[in-house]
Design a binder for these strands. Structure first.
Length: 346
DNA sequence: AACGCGGGGTC
DNA sequence: GACCCAGCGTT
């Protein structure tokens, strides 16, 4: 048996039973694929369930407002996925007469859909013979065939794409794509792969050369920068001020509190500035130690300052504590608010 | 071609 | 800490 037949045989016995595999509904498959971009199945599954519950049809998603979509996405990260998902739903519903495109070349035109996601939808929903190439596929192919090219380099992607397109089952492209990803997620793991029981251990290049720890090759250098975020709880009785982020920065379109970002953790200067800005208020730092929150490229140091004010400014968006839960926040902010104000809801 | 974008899990 | 996860859009 060749690689493809062995893999399909393995899949038949070991496949995971995942909710989006019990449908050929392109909308549901698309939804699952967007949610799962750079996201583990265990983390994404509850969000998938919530989305199909709240937006059972593509029309429901297309006609929702963006804030509602973001609220449902709260905590999942990479929020542009939610905004692009919503934009693409509107495109399909309003511009394409509610017909989901059925070919890879058309699917990939939609916002938020790249080569991986287009291949996934085209094969799973429409049985098109086009191979998915994701982190799992890089790993399985690099190890089995001994491919040393750096997967972080864009042009090397075609090596893997072409190989996968040769290997894919022409009869069951959807099963092959599921199979190779399941295999990468269950056997050919990033660290400590299960080689001793692997069906390919007699002819896997990486295993035979004892190179599973260096394959696939991936040289990605990312620099982490520190940011110091000081949030103001501007409070009058049961109302506080919130605002929506807009700039090209993290957490676009999500809500937060009035923010003072400083180049370093200079508490004295911040207190001086706040005292000048709120001369008649008591300013209380409510985070004993700054909250540390790590993003992929940033280390955040977050503090909250409670300030009772006499009146809200006309340009400020005030919200009752009872309504705070209606807005989408970065999860680190929401967790703080929930705890600080003893809120129950999501 | 390189970088920015979240949050959580694993080792 | 470092790395990874059903990647994509922007520059």
């Amino acid at each position: 048996m060749d690689f493809t037949d062995q893999l399909l045989h393995w899949y038949q016995k070991n496949k995971r039973d995942l909710p989006w595999r019990n449908t050929t509904n392109a909308y549901y498959i698309w939804l699952s694929e967007i949610i799962l971009q750079q996201t583990r199945v265990e983390q994404g599954t509850p969000y998938y369930e919530a989305f199909i519950e709240n937006f059972p049809t593509l029309k429901d998603l297309a006609t929702a407002n963006e804030d509602a979509v973001l609220k449902l996405w709260q905590g999942l990260g990479y929020y542009s996925r939610a905004r692009n998902l919503h934009a693409a739903a509107k495109t399909i519903y309003f511009d394409l007469n509610n017909r989901f495109p059925e070919k890879y070349s058309d699917i990939i035109q939609l916002k938020g859909i790249g080569p991986y996601t287009a291949a996934a939808i085209a094969s799973f929903a429409f049985k098109e013979t086009v191979a998915v190439v994701d982190g799992n596929v890089f790993r399985v192919l690099a190890r089995f065939f001994g491919i040393y090219e750096d997967t972080a380099v864009a042009k090397n992607r075609t090596i893997f794409q072409n190989l996968a397109n040769e290997l894919i089952s022409k009869k069951e492209p959807d099963l092959f794509n599921h199979a190779i990803m399941d295999f990468g997620a269950m056997v050919c793991l990033p660290a400590n792969p299960k080689c001793s029981t692997c069906i390919f251990n007699v002819n896997c290049v990486a295993f035979l050369r004892n190179e599973t720890s260096i394959l696939p090759t991936k040289n990605k250098k990312i620099s982490i920068k520190n940011r110091y975020l000081n949030y103001l709880i501007l409070r009058k009785n049961h109302e506080i001020v919130i605002q929506q982020r807009t700039e090209k920065d993290i957490w676009q379109q999500l809500f937060e509190l009035p923010l003072i970002e400083t180049p370093s953790n200079n508490e004295e200067k911040l207190f001086t500035d706040l005292s000048n800005r709120f001369p008649n208020s008591t300013i209380k730092k409510v985070t004993a130690n700054s909250i540390k929150h790590k993003l992929s490229h940033q280390q955040l140091h977050i503090n909250f300052y409670e300030i009772d004010i006499a009146a809200f400014a006309p340009n400020q968006q005030k919200v009752s504590l009872n309504d705070l839960h209606k807005y989408a926040y970065p999860i680190v902010i929401w967790n703080f608010l929930k705890d600080f104000f003893k809120l129950e809801k999501n």
